[in-house]
Amino acid sequence: MKELFDLFRAFFTIGALTFGGGYAMLPMLEREIVSKHKWATSEELLNYFAIGQCTPGVIAVNTATFVGHKVKGVIGGIVATLGVVAPSIVIITIIAMVLQNFMDIAWVQHAFAGIRVAVCALITASVVKLFKSNVKKHWHIALAVVAFVVVALLKLSPVYVVVGCAVLSFIFGKKVQKA
């Protein structure tokens, strides 16, 4: 029971603090899931992200379901998922209800402009950490650079990158393991 409560609380925190959606949750995930509760390693998080790219649904929700399932089975998956969406439901309902022109208030706009910059800095720090632990060999660097170019510059869907990597692993997997 305590574990379920911890799961809900951790994912509620993540949902409440993830500005910008998707990968912006990475700094929060690392803090709550990897370093604080040790429910998953940062490697496992990347595995979950890879799967989340090619399955339907919001990445944050997919990751919550995965981690919850790992900790406490099906119930854990459901509890973690409800935890990650609960803050959005509350916050957005309040905004929709009381503050029709919420985003027009000047200081709210200033605050969000500052928050966006802070989120960028947090993501930068996470990306640096991620590269240090997961991008070590030459072919790792090549894969990371190609993935970046395909999505950031060529504007193609990340699905192609993930599927492409799966295909490459079948072709070159054995060679790389020996090397």
């Binding site: 590269f131 990371a144 970046f148 990340p158 990597c165 692993s169």
Partner: peptide, 16 residues
């Protein structure tokens, strides 16, 4: 093997 290939790429996706 598949995940070993995907992880560096996902790091690139997150950078993007």
């Amino acid at each position: 093997n598949m995940f070993a290939f995907m992880r560096p790429a996902v790091a690139g996706l997150i950078a993007a």
